[in-house]
Computed example of a mutant assay.
Amino acid sequence: MLSDLISNWAQPGRVEWIGLRPDRRAGMVVADEEGMISTNGLDGDRGRAGKRALTLIQREHLAAIGSYLGQGPVTPDILRRNLVVSGINLAALKGREVQVGEAVLRFTVICVPCSRMEEALGKGGYSAVRGHGGWCAEVVRPGRVTLGGEVQPVD
């Protein structure tokens, strides 16, 4: 049955990178080892409670975006996402509760690229990010997130 196939996942993912956006156009601040996720998103980030409190992207998509630009993987700070995750398909988790470290999130909408992608990545940057920009999430349960922490659906 299709619902059974959709509910399966092969392995937990891992948190590879944690970044904060302190202000609208300010440079990203990379967290050393951990961050605290509250209802507003990562502490120290300009996030806000609701369906866009936190943003996540798959590490695997950084290489895809770079390949569309004719270069190596882009760095996560350019895309301004909070968490980089590897090893699990984030799109397959849409609408589900997902444990990220100690926190529980719910992926809500795709992070669409902003017009600044042309400025940040050069000509074609906006199109390169389309479909690969990650996900926005709301916080279901606050908690600590660490580098190397597991990412998996709450079953």
Rank of each mutant, 00 (worst) to 15 (best):
V151R: 02
G124W: 14
I65A: 00
R48N: 13
S127P: 04
G13R: 09
H61A: 08
L69V: 02
S115N: 13
R21L: 06
D77M: 08
E97P: 07
G35S: 07
K94R: 15
G148P: 04
L54E: 01
W9G: 03
Q58R: 14
K94M: 12
R116Y: 15
H132R: 15
I57W: 00
S86I: 07
Q99D: 04
R59V: 04
A92P: 03
G35N: 00
T75E: 11
N8L: 10
S38P: 05
G95S: 07
R48Q: 09
C114M: 08
L69C: 01
L2T: 15
P12M: 06
I37A: 00
G148V: 03
Q11H: 07
L42N: 01
G125S: 13
G13Y: 01
L5D: 08
G47P: 05
L5C: 13
C111Y: 00
L62H: 03
Q99E: 09
P113T: 03
L20N: 03
R106D: 02
I65P: 04
L20H: 06
R59A: 11
I18T: 02
S7E: 11
D32L: 09
K51N: 12
S86N: 02
N8G: 11
N8V: 12
A92H: 11
Q11V: 08
G122N: 05
P73N: 01
R144G: 02
M28W: 07
I6N: 06
G131S: 06
E138Q: 14
R48G: 05
E16W: 00
E102R: 12
L56W: 06
I18R: 02
L69E: 05
R24H: 12
H61K: 10
P153Y: 00
S127T: 14
S67M: 04
C111Q: 03
I65Q: 00
D4L: 15
P22G: 07
R52G: 05
N89P: 04
L20I: 09
G95R: 01
A103T: 03
R14I: 06
P153H: 04
G87W: 03
K123W: 08
R81D: 06
R81H: 10
I57M: 06
V129C: 14
G19K: 02
E16N: 04
R59F: 03
A64N: 08
A63Y: 00
G148C: 02
G133F: 01
L20F: 08
A10V: 11
M36E: 09
R59D: 04
E34M: 10
L56F: 09
A63V: 01
I6P: 02
P22A: 02
K123N: 15
N40V: 07
P142E: 02
A31Q: 06
L2V: 14
A120D: 15
I65H: 00
A91N: 15
T75C: 08
E119T: 11
V109Q: 11
A137D: 02
K94W: 04
